[in-house]
Simulated scan of single mutants.
Amino acid sequence: MSSSSTYTLYTAGTPNGWKVSILMEELGLDYKLQPVNIFKGEQKEDWFMKINPNARIPALVDHEAGNVRVFESGAIMWYLAVKHGKFFPKEAREQAETMSWLMFQMGGLGPMQGQASHFLRFAPEKGKDWIANDDYSIADMATFPWVLSSAVAGLSLEGKPNLQKWIERCLARPATSRGLDVPEPNKAKGLKNDPAAADKMFAEMNVSIK
């Protein structure tokens, strides 16, 4: 990241924010980070709503393209993946599969975290390394922060070895791990998908999730 960057990313430490920062790190993009304090309501301030009228993070400004704004996390991921020609397949059939899983995350897993337990029974194939196709894609990046944060919703991934292996494969990618630490170090990494550990973390923060 630098002071005269190609992009400005407006974000906060949430799964929707992390999935975009993961992609930007995986792409090796030059971007300026602008944290948005959602607990203080900064996303509803006039300056931010000029970038995203829906008043939600993340949002992106592409300075290289004439200060084009892009909002909604899935739209940002699609925009960047297509623009830079990575993590989005070229074949129509594989594009459809990737977009279907990306939209599943946007419309299913994200809004209703309770579906996470169902999510990892989705694939008829056993032992598949990545969600949509044979390669890591924006479908994995969009879903990963939510599954990693499942303990926050009180969900345990115990007894789901294929899911645990997928999480480890994602975490093993240096750029993905860096993306999780935007805009601050990611506490979800240390929860190990353990709801009790999440309860302890929030108790130490004096925050109730019940």
Rank of each mutant, 00 (worst) to 15 (best):
D181Q: 11
A92W: 08
E25F: 07
A123E: 10
P195T: 13
D46H: 12
R121S: 05
M77P: 03
A12D: 15
V147Q: 06
K128E: 09
A123W: 02
A172Y: 00
V68Q: 07
E42C: 11
Y79F: 10
G41N: 04
E42V: 06
R121E: 14
G190N: 09
K210S: 14
D140R: 05
K83D: 05
Y31H: 04
D134C: 02
F87I: 00
F119G: 04
G41W: 05
L102H: 05
S73L: 15
L148W: 14
F122H: 11
G190D: 14
G107P: 02
S149H: 00
A196P: 00
A123N: 11
P185T: 03
A151N: 05
N186R: 03
V68L: 05
Q43L: 11
E26M: 08
A139F: 09
L157V: 09
E91K: 15
P161A: 13
Y31M: 09
Y7E: 13
L120D: 05
E97I: 12
W101G: 01
G154D: 07
A59I: 14
D194H: 01
L180W: 08
M77I: 09
N54I: 03
L171M: 07
S208K: 06
A12K: 02
D46K: 13
R178W: 08
I51N: 14
A65Y: 05
A153Y: 12
P183C: 13
P124I: 15
A132M: 09
A188C: 08
Y10V: 14
D140N: 06
G17P: 10
G114L: 04
L23S: 11
K19G: 06
E64P: 00
A196L: 13
D135T: 09
R93H: 11
G41M: 11
Y79R: 07
A59F: 08
E168Y: 02
F104M: 04
A55H: 13
V82Q: 13
K128L: 02
S208R: 02
N52G: 06
V82S: 02
L27D: 12
M49Y: 09
S5E: 12
K187T: 09
N206R: 12
G159Q: 03
F122W: 15
K189W: 10
G28Q: 10
F39T: 03
F88D: 00
A92D: 08
G41Y: 13
